[in-house]
Design a binder for these strands. Structure first.
Length: 234
DNA sequence: AAACCGAACAACCGCGTCCGA
DNA sequence: CTCGGACGCGGTTGTTCGGTT
């Protein structure tokens, strides 16, 4: 009797979540927001630890999640991102709206790794494995970077800095106007400190982009017929 | 039909970081 | 400045499911 506080953990449920538990968590968070995660289980009437609630909400219950299998485009994006970011799953997830770091990590470990090995590529370094792998036919070559933007996507600037390096893209402003004048060229997260970018208007001289001025919001990119282009330089 | 096996998915654990007292 | 709690991330383990023998 009267053991240390962590003994209360014995009362906490573990393992798979029941539909009833999901319903309680969804109901509570949609009404009150999650606030302090450690108090969520108590307030929501759940026998779980706050950490478990947070994970369940972030990875499976959030309304903005995109479920289902990864498209070829998403898979190529993951490979591009992993090549430059490594196992930074949360940063990779920032480049794939509606996907979670856990989901991407699982997909990588269970599926993508295997495919890369079949292509003769070391999944951890992205360097071709030796042993005559040059002769191997790539059954599913990566899409050119530009094609990854065939549809508008929202990207973290860090992701952009890593993956747009040396590439040129066309941009689409969310309000249909000029990217800069419209004030829509804004970023989520931190600006990439070691990168420089230039924006070039239809046939004009390239102009420097100041990352630090665009540290909130998001960027919408498209390969549609816009005049503006963005060149990310090392 | 049952047992086995591997792939895919879900969840937990440990650790590092951040922030407020 | 230090300490402790909360949070977030990445690695790992556990569970489920479908295919094969």
């Amino acid at each position: 009797m009267g053991g240390p506080s962590w003994c209360h953990k014995e009362k906490l449920r573990k393992g798979l979540w029941s539909p009833e538990e999901d319903a309680k968590l969804i109901d509570y968070i949609t009404r009150h927001g999650h606030g302090c995660w450690s108090s969520v289980p108590k307030l929501a009437g759940l026998q779980r630890c706050g950490k478990s609630c947070r994970l369940r909400w972030i990875n499976y219950l959030r309304p903005d999640l995109k479920r289902g299998t990864f498209s070829q485009k998403e898979e190529d994006l993951i490979i591009h991102l992993h090549e430059s970011l490594g196992n930074k799953w949360s940063q990779i997830a920032a480049g794939l709206p509606g996907r979670t770091d856990n989901e991407i990590k699982n997909y990588w470990n269970s599926c993508v790794k295997k495919k890369l090995k079949q292509r003769g590529v070391d999944p951890s370094t992205h360097i071709p494995l030796d042993g005559g792998s040059e002769d191997k036919q790539d059954p599913s070559p990566l899409l050119p970077a530009k094609e990854l933007f065939a549809e508008p996507l929202h990207h973290d600037p860090l992701w952009l800095a890593h993956n747009a390096v040396g590439s040129e893209f066309e941009l689409q402003s969310s309000n249909g106007g000029n990217l800069l004048d419209g004030g829509v060229l804004q970023w989520t997260g931190l600006p990439p400190p070691d990168k420089a970018a230039q924006i070039q208007f239809d046939g004009g001289e390239p102009e420097d982009l100041k990352w630090s001025e665009y540290i909130t919001g998001s960027i919408s990119m498209s390969a549609s017929s816009w005049h503006e282009s963005l060149l990310i330089q090392k």
